[in-house]
Amino acid sequence: MNNIRELSKDESSGMTIIVKTISRLVLSFILLFGFYIILYGHITPGGGFAGGVILSISYVLLMLAFGSKVALAKLSNFWASMLDNLGALAFIVIGFLGLTGGYFMTNFIWHGHPGQLISAGIIPLCNIAIAIKVSAALYAIFIGLSIYGRIVTEEEK
């Protein structure tokens, strides 16, 4: 954690102090809004995909404002790829667990009362799995776009 704090103070990487200060303020709200969209996905508009995109945006903003070192220290490309796979795996496992209710993808958990946060059986769980998958995948794509470069040949130099 200390390392991240030092890295974020490094003025040579990332954008200006104005962008950094504002980003520091709004980042946690973006993250929180993402969690809200995911967890309330089954009762309000939104869901796993939309929430996951918002979550990944907070990391993208971190990378844009503070540079890739800070963002990668928070969540490395290894873990982005890992979470991407684990999210997808979680979704498939939920589908297979549905077989206990009779069919693949059956909503086998207690459904609760419509409109309440704890309701709708497996749907919130699916939303969370999708959100993990989507957020990690979009962040990994952004890492791919930013840290890989074209090899410049001798002639072009």
Partner: peptide
Amino acid sequence: MNHILPLLVGIPLGMSVINLILSKA
């Protein structure tokens, strides 16, 4: 009802993900 049908999609889909996780080791 034949529970093999969803497996025809589920097995390759699941294994493609598991394969990537295990290949890191």
